[in-house]
Design a protein around this nucleic acid. Structure first.
Length: 259
DNA sequence: ATGGTGGTCGTACCA
């Protein structure tokens, strides 16, 4: 079962590129971020016509996450627990059942810039809430994954020019430590586990010819519980998508699970 | 050399 995460940077702007990639890559499940759409404006029928079930947690103009799945989506939950006053749409969960059940968590972690400042405080607080939910997933001792745009460059080798990110919220030591606090609860970072070599990126800025210069960063990640990691057979980044017409600034990152 | 591009909404904000 092929499960992908893809920050599409606006569903309206990606109305051609996203279906094109779905046809080519044929993922079973896709966790989408930055749909920048309200629930009722999301073109669910476009994907339903391609055989996907659709669950949306939308927001006007900003953020927004969704799940496309060829398997039925059960027990859908929207929003990251822990702060009832947080209205930003950055978290969605659902369960799919193959040979066994898999809990899916799709996330769009706050960017946090500029740091320091209130946006950075929000990022760190959000990550602490995520850590609590992550601990619950581990305690269940079942296959589960958390995939999405983490807005975290885990290590220097995950950036073409790490020095350029030294003071950025995506690479600050406190950001990376918060990411490790989640990871070190017992998750497997799927791409790193299967491809330890540097030079693999999932985001290239639209500005300053970043794609042409391969000035990228790896910030889209798939974290697996041990029971999901047992099922991992392959990983990949579909970087060629970045060079096609009207691309997102992110590309799909995927895992293959023997589910 | 502190620029540059893109999406969404609406003439500003976010990344």
């Amino acid at each position: 079962m092929k499960i992908a995460t893809f920050n599409i940077n606006g569903i309206k702007a990606r109305a051609e590129a996203l279906p094109r990639w779905l046809e080519a890559a044929a993922p079973d499940i896709v966790l989408l971020q930055e749909i920048k759409s309200m629930d009722d404006a999301f073109p669910a029928s476009l994907f339903e016509d391609m055989g996907y079930n659709v669950a949306v947690h939308g927001q006007k103009s900003f953020n927004g996450v969704a799940i496309l799945s060829k398997l039925p989506l059960e027990d859908v939950r929207r929003g990251l627990p822990g702060d009832p006053e947080d209205e930003q749409a950055r978290w969605i969960e659902a369960t799919v059942v193959g040979r066994r059940a898999l809990r899916l968590c799709g996330l769009y972690l706050p960017n946090g810039n500029p740091a320091p400042g209130p946006k950075y405080d929000y990022k760190l607080a959000w990550m602490e809430r995520m850590r609590a939910r992550a601990a619950e997933l581990l305690a269940a001792e079942e296959p589960a994954l958390m995939a999405g745009d983490y807005n975290i460059i885990p290590q220097a080798e995950d950036a073409a020019k790490p020095e350029a990110w030294r003071e950025d919220a995506l690479f600050l030591p406190e950001s990376r430590a918060a990411f490790r606090r989640i990871l070190n609860l017992g998750f497997t970072e799927a791409f790193r586990a299967r491809e330890p070599r540097p030079g693999h990126y999932s985001f290239w800025d639209y500005q300053a010819g970043a794609w042409a210069r391969n000035n990228g960063i790896r910030i889209d990640h798939v974290l697996l519980t041990p029971q999901a990691a047992d099922l991992l057979t392959d990983v990949g980044i579909d970087k060629e998508v970045r060079g096609e017409d009207k691309p997102s600034d992110h590309v799909p990152v995927w895992v293959e699970l023997d589910l």
